[in-house]
Write a protein that binds this DNA or RNA. Structure first.
Length: 257
DNA sequence: GAAAATGTTATCAT
DNA sequence: TATGATAACATTTT
């Protein structure tokens, strides 16, 4: 369910509930004070990367779907919801197998907690800031950099694999070894691909646009793709050893003479 | 039915 | 104490 664009879709699907008042709340999350939610109106529905945020006057419910989470709006699954919100006048949100946290504090709390400029889906996205963070971590591998939520909030493993293939960057490339133009392209493409992901997912044609993710053969040169669990993140990487260039700095002896 | 997967956080060890 | 590696969690699809 996750990756930033999917959360944007959730936000759109839920948008009509802004201003509605919670009539009842329940679920098997132990992090929520359910009684406290009743009677509170939804001030705003927001997102930061993979986080879905339900802003109430006195607190914010933060939902993260991790790997297996799911939701239904005005519908239910045959499973116990982690969090269920019923609204006055009808309608409900149901969240399953996700992480739910209750952030205490009124309006303004979120701005103190989140840097919206790091969210690739946000209007406030600042590519220059991402670039600065990348330059500050030259030893980081490209595959890890894209998954770093502090740099590219919302980017997930699918977007990572597709972006690296498009730019013909090998996942094990060092950020500090990428030419400046490549680095800029990486930042640009992280956002651009995320928006294409969004459009394709909305049209139910996301998977057919995957070029390498879960694929066996390079669509460009037709040799078999490599699959590996790379980087610090040890996440599945699909890449072409021939088409994707490995950028590496020549190893330098540690400080001496 | 086993295994793996769009992810993060808690816990353990050093 | 701080850092880093490993474990844990949870559900659906292959």
């Amino acid at each position: 369910m996750p990756e930033g664009p999917s959360i944007v879709i959730l936000k759109q699907e839920a948008a009509a509930f802004t201003g509605r008042t919670i009539a009842a709340a329940g679920g098997n999350s132990k992090a929520v004070d359910y009684a406290r939610l009743v009677g509170q109106p939804v001030v705003a529905l927001r997102s930061w990367g993979k986080h879905f945020l339900i802003e109430l006057p006195e607190l914010v419910l933060k939902i993260h779907f991790l790997l297996f989470g799911s939701y239904r709006i005005n519908a239910r699954k045959d499973a116990p919801p982690r969090l269920s919100l019923q609204f006055q006048g009808g309608g409900e949100f149901n969240f399953y197998a996700c992480s739910v946290k209750q952030l205490d504090g009124g309006p303004g709390r979120l701005d103190a907690l989140y840097d919206w400029r790091a969210d690739v889906m946000a209007d406030q996205w600042r590519p220059a800031l991402a670039l600065k963070k990348l330059r500050a971590a030259p030893a980081m591998l490209a595959c890890d950099a894209l998954l770093d939520q502090d740099i590219f909030s919302g980017v997930g493993n699918i977007i990572k694999n597709e972006v690296l293939f498009r730019l013909r960057i090998h996942p094990l490339s060092e950020v500090g070894a990428l030419p400046v133009a490549k680095l800029r392209a990486l930042v640009k493409q992280a956002r651009e691909y995320s928006f294409e992901f969004l459009a394709w997912k909305q049209a139910y044609v996301l998977k057919q646009h995957w070029l390498v993710h879960t694929k066996k053969m390079c669509p460009r040169c037709k040799i078999p793709l490599s699959k590996g669990y790379l980087g610090q993140s040890r996440r599945r990487s699909f890449h072409c050893e021939s088409c994707q260039k490995l950028y590496k700095n020549t190893p330098r002896a540690p400080d001496c003479c």
